[in-house]
Design a protein around this nucleic acid. Structure first.
Lengths: 167, 167
DNA sequence: CTACTTTATTATCTTTTGTTAACGATCGAA
DNA sequence: TTCGATCGTTAACAAAAGATAATAAAGTAG
């Protein structure tokens, strides 16, 4: 299922009940995965939703998934009722703040860490991501090619093996 | 002037009246600049401000600057008054949404573009950034070293010169 | 189980980046 | 003006990443 598409205005904000979604771009005809969301998370091409501009990104289900969502027009309808304005403002704020925290950490990692460091930290965190998405998606997520990630893995696991031998 | 410091909780959200601020990390004793803000922009280590957690980033004035700001405690005070809750919710939402748009574009550029492409696009955009910050800050911002940026500039300007000769 | 497709690894080669150090250029203070 | 510090460029080398192709491993459908 496609939730958002490049070049089209994103008219919904969704909440994943179960399943998983992938955020990606198409560059030179190749898909580059950028982010992954699982149950109990909000998804949206939020910039497009807010600014009413064509989306930069695509969002697509990776498996059979269930979501609930509200549309931009239904949000506008709701906001005609004074009594719900406050709650919707709060709701919008919470979604935005949730997304900010995701983005901030991600930008930090790109500026301060090498791809190898990013992958090491992900390994140490034991994040679900490692189990739930294929390695070539993960490579994109880290900002490198699948081939390069494979080499990084080789380096890391060789080093771990040496450590084990020494102990 | 220091607006936010690594390891300390950020208690303010500021708005720049004039001047400029630099966001940076310290890694292995070296400062890595990550973002820059100028007049009429909001600044905050917003994740720290929201979550009441130690800041990951530092924010510091690059020149004499004037800002107005509100503190977390004054925000809490304000929110005791029912009549301002709505406006503050909206205000918080607008700040969060503003920051999201900055971050989203930045993450996209890291995943889909090479450092050279990022610099080329910045050149083409004619962004003020190019005039207002030194090149070694810009290098950090692009995720590379100053030496590497210098090489990229050489490549680009050599290519431009060749194009000019041909025409 | 086999054949086919997809994903991961490995190899080779080229390009780019990081690191370190040297060299100019620029700017401000003495 | 001169000294010193800072910033940008360049050079040389090592390390890492991209591109491409071949191979191995894993997963799927028949």
């Amino acid at each position: 299922m496609k939730f958002a598409a490049h070049g089209k205005i994103c008219n919904e904000v969704g909440f994943i009940l179960n399943g998983s979604f992938r955020f990606f771009f198409v560059k030179d005809g190749i898909e580059i995965s950028n982010y992954f969301s699982f149950q109990n998370e909000f998804i949206s091409s939020y910039r497009s939703f807010l600014k009413r501009e064509p989306s930069l990104i695509n969002i697509e289900a990776m498996e059979d998934s269930q979501i609930i969502y509200f549309s931009y027009t239904s949000l506008q309808e709701l906001l005609k009722d004074e009594r719900v304005v406050l709650k919707m403002e709060r709701f919008g704020r919470m979604i935005a703040e949730y997304l900010i925290c995701c983005y901030e950490e991600r930008v930090v990692s790109f500026v301060t860490q090498t791809p190898e460091e990013r992958y090491r930290l992900l390994l140490e965190s034991g994040d679900d991501l490692l189990q739930r998405i294929p390695q070539y998606y993960l490579a994109n997520y880290l900002g490198i090619t699948p081939v390069s990630l494979s080499r990084i893995r080789k380096r890391i696991f060789a080093a771990m093996k040496r450590q084990k031998m020494a102990s």
